[in-house]
Design a protein around this nucleic acid. Structure first.
Length: 655
RNA sequence: GCCGACAUAGCUCAGGGGUAGAGCAACUGAUUCGUAAUCAGUAGGUCCUCGGUUCAAUUCCGAGUGUCGGCACCA
């Protein structure tokens, strides 16, 4: 005699067990038609599930966000059926719902071609039109394995074999076709609707392991209605429009070419942008008590052997030598061993700790060819790298200070929020558990201190210590790990770093590897996409263009240009014999934030007409006013901020 | 690295077994114009590289390189 509580709090009493469909029916035919699945005591289940005990039920209709998952999951099943109807020699493997859509991985001799997609899509529409009911059945484990093996579905058989003994093996039938599935599903294939589209084919390893077979994956996107689908497709187009590779070309920021795959040719404007960011980072670091250094690119292999990189990282290192010398060098893949050389160069006192050593040093890593991506994943890059040499007791305080600094930077650069991942001890690691306990504890304590919530990334820490990762999301919805802070007990040990403590004895410092932007290259890529090339004035590579309307205004335009230069603004004068419309259009396409238009009137009155990117309005003001205004606007956000860490000789006063 | 697609003028792209075409940009000339394309003319190519097939390859085939979409990787 179940009593069923509805979301509005009302309770309905039933005589004996009822299915979800029966409950929906009893409430009304409209709901019965609309309900795709239900949340039974908070768990999403099929409408056919029997309710025996007192329960709470919420029906999921197409109006609910939860319907998206169901539609996508069912679409994946329909896709698999369509593929097997069209291509009988294909094995099915797995096909989950994902963000914005679904995919299904198939095993077959010939991978699918893009041309196959419309045909498969057509078949999917047929299957949806057939409106086949999804019927759940429980199959004994052995029978299920036998069944799938008999049907040549070896991947499915392997999946079942690897399911824990406790797991119920459920099968969903849809007409003549069936698939191993945990569920839940909607009522029929018809519930999938028509707001879906197959988007691409791709290769993917079986079970995500590169040692396994390569499967053929088909991706699709699915939504509740056509309007949602169209909105999503439009969103994809907009994301493509702000792709950093495209904007980099449009704004003439950089290029890449075959002879230096994975290394960037920065053009004048791109380099200005780069320097604007680097100058900003240098100012921030000074305020936070960092010292900047510069260390060699090419370093003898003996240092890499000592640091352990030769053993652990050699495949990713560029090795160099010359004919006449019997030595091997490597281009540095990271700065840390060199920083320890500076630390070790003199006798260090505990009074110098924490010692924050920063470097914008170019690092080279041989990334796999398939990993390269515009300027975001390259083989030659510059990290906003720094290493903090400190005592174990200082880890928490330094971490808190770092998170504070990182938040400030992200905010200044237009990112309001970021996610934090905490990676703790991996299975294979250096150091004893007591040390790990302390290291992890220090990071957690720091997060708490600065009120930062993190998700646990279990076992993903570096072999030498736990780490925090700071993740930003770009305009195309991709996540990029930018900031990081890693605790390292091992490298100071390997490279024999030490300081003299209060007790006059030698002690081993702890090292914190940390970066905020990650690398300039990647971060600039993200920044370009974030702002769609429309940078705030202080970052913009080309801040102002002075454009003339008639040649009579040329000498005045030169005067305006000179005055802007004198204020330190980056400006160009466009005196070409072109119509003002053409000039406005060209500079707008170049994302120049401010165009100062000068014609006869402005020349006579010593004024300028300010036109801003994105706006159609123009504002006329005196040249002096305009200069003051722009100068103020072009001020980087950190100007005028006080130092956070006051450095004094041999003394650190944390402010 | 793996699966697939792609590589033609500075850019965006069309074409196709008989050594190539558009628009924009560039250059020249005319035009002096008020807020997102003034008009006309000229010039511009090792059709990614190396092999093979063919009387003939930029086109077909193979290999390589790079790029793109995924997967794996990102200490």
């Amino acid at each position: 005699m179940p009593a069923i509580t509805m979301p509005d709090g009302s309770v309905r009493q039933y005589e004996g067990a009822v299915t979800g469909s029966m409950v929906a029916e009893s409430i009304g035919p409209g709901l019965a038609r609309a309900a795709l699945a239900m949340e039974l005591n908070g768990k999403l289940v099929d409408m056919s599930v029997e309710i025996v005990d007192d329960s709470s039920v919420k029906f999921i209709t197409r109006k609910d966000e939860e319907a998206l998952f169901l539609i996508r999951h069912d679409a994946a099943h329909v896709l698999a059926q369509a593929v097997q109807e069209l291509f009988p020699n294909t094995q099915v493997t797995i096909g989950p719902a994902i963000e914005n859509g679904f995919y299904y991985d198939f095993a077959r001799e010939e991978p699918f071609k893009p041309e196959d997609l419309p045909i498969i899509e057509q078949k999917m529409h047929e299957i949806i039109a057939r409106n086949e009911p999804f019927i759940r059945q429980v199959m004994p484990r052995d029978e299920a394995i036998r069944y799938f093996k008999a049907h040549g579905e070896h991947y499915k058989a392997e999946l079942i074999q690897d399911l824990p003994e406790s797991e119920t093996i459920s099968i969903y039938e849809q007409g003549p076709w069936l698939d191993l599935c945990r569920g839940p599903h909607m009522r029929t294939t018809g519930d999938v609707g028509n707001a879906f589209k197959l988007t691409r084919v791709a290769g993917a390893y079986w079970r995500g392991d590169s040692r396994n077979a390569m499967l053929s994956r088909i991706y699709g996107t699915a939504w509740r209605d056509r309007k949602e689908l169209d909105a999503y497709l439009t969103q994809l187009e907009e994301a493509a429009r702000r792709d950093h590779r495209r904007i980099g070309k449009e704004m003439d920021l950089f290029h890449l070419q075959e002879e230096a795959a994975g290394s960037i040719f920065w053009h004048p404007k791109g380099w200005r942008l780069y320097n604007n960011l680097q100058n900003y980072m240098q100012r921030i670091q000074r305020r936070y008590g960092y010292e900047e250094v510069r260390t060699p690119q090419l370093v003898d292999r003996s240092l890499w052997e000592a640091s352990g990189h030769w053993e652990k990282f050699k495949e990713n290192m560029f090795i160099a030598s010359v004919e006449d010398e019997d030595r091997t060098y490597a281009l540095k893949p990271m700065n840390c061993p060199c920083h320890i050389q500076i630390f070790n160069h003199t006798l260090r006192s505990y009074r110098e700790l924490p010692l924050r050593m920063a470097e914008f040093g170019a690092c080279h890593r041989f990334e796999p060819s398939g990993a390269l991506h515009g300027i975001m994943r390259v083989r030659s890059f510059v990290q906003d790298d720094a290493h903090i040499f400190c005592t174990e007791d200082q880890i928490t305080q330094e971490t808190a200070l770092f998170v504070h600094m990182l938040s400030e930077v992200y905010k200044d650069l237009g990112f309001e929020s970021f996610r934090v991942k905490f990676s703790d001890r991996p299975a294979v690691r250096a150091g004893d558990d007591a040390t790990w306990d302390r290291a992890e504890g220090s990071l957690k304590k720091a997060c708490k201190q600065v009120n930062v919530e993190y998700e646990l990334n279990k076992g993903e820490g570096a072999f030498y210590g736990p780490k925090l990762e700071f993740v930003l999301r770009d305009a195309i919805g991709r996540d990029w790990q930018c900031g990081t802070l890693q605790v390292d007990y091992v490298l100071p040990e390997r490279l024999n770093a030490s300081y003299i403590g209060e007790d006059s004895a030698r002690h081993r410092p702890v090292m914190l590897h940390r970066a905020i932007l990650g690398s300039f290259e990647r971060f600039l890529g993200i920044l370009i996409e974030q702002h769609a090339g429309h940078f705030p004035l202080w970052l913009a590579p080309q801040q102002v263009v002075v454009a003339t309307i008639v040649s009579d205004a040329e000498s005045y335009a030169q005067e305006v240009f000179d005055r802007l230069i004198a204020e330190g603004l980056s400006v160009e004068a466009d005196l070409r014999n072109e119509k003002i419309n053409a000039k406005i259009r060209e500079h707008s396409l170049q994302h120049v934030p401010v165009i100062l238009v000068v014609g006869r009137k402005e020349a006579e009155n010593k004024t300028v007409a300010i036109r801003r990117l994105g706006g159609a309005a123009q504002e006329i003001m005196s040249l002096d006013e305009a200069l003051q205004l722009l100068k103020k606007e072009a001020l980087p956000p950190d100007f005028g901020r006080h130092s956070i860490v006051k450095k004094q000789l041999n003394l650190n006063c944390e402010g």
